[in-house]
């Protein structure tokens, strides 16, 4: 059983590595956001299997915290790129006109030249 859990944990680490490769390569913003989100999910699963492996329950708390932070961080990143600010309440978001539609296109004039 121990070996079985270890192999699953190793496979989960391999899945994390695959997500990392997408994170390194990913051409667009949304590839990377998805890769980070998926990477966080795999970290949660890795920690759960790890807590099974070593027989300590306290890693489960960390895994729960990760799940929460992962969700909130993804929402924050997407909100940031849609609205350029974190000060807009979620309830008002649909009423506001979006500052720009996507990250990749030329958005604000750059006056740095």
């Amino acid at each position: 059983m121990y070996i079985f859990n270890f192999i699953i944990a190793l496979g989960m680490a391999g899945a994390m590595a695959i997500m990392l490769s997408r994170l390194f390569a990913g051409p667009t913003l949304y590839d990377r956001v998805l890769a980070v989100n998926s990477f966080g999910t795999k970290t949660v699963l890795f920690l759960l299997i790890f807590s099974q492996l070593v027989g300590r329950g306290d890693a489960i708390d960390i895994a729960l915290l990760y799940a929460l932070i992962n969700f909130v961080a993804t929402i924050a990143i997407l909100k940031f790129f849609r609205y350029r600010s974190l000060e807009i309440a979620l309830a008002q978001m649909s009423l506001r006109r979006a500052v720009d539609d996507s990250f990749g296109e030329d958005d604000e004039p750059e006056d740095q030249s």
Partner: peptide
């Protein structure tokens, strides 16, 4: 910081992992 927090968990330093996850992966990224 997510990875290093997972590593802290495997080193049995759960509180450090909590801090790293909340500060590094959460607030720090934003």
């Amino acid at each position: 910081s997510l990875l290093s927090a997972a590593w802290f968990v495997s080193l049995d330093a759960v509180d450090v992992a909590f801090t790293e996850a909340a500060v590094g992966a959460g607030i720090g990224t934003v």
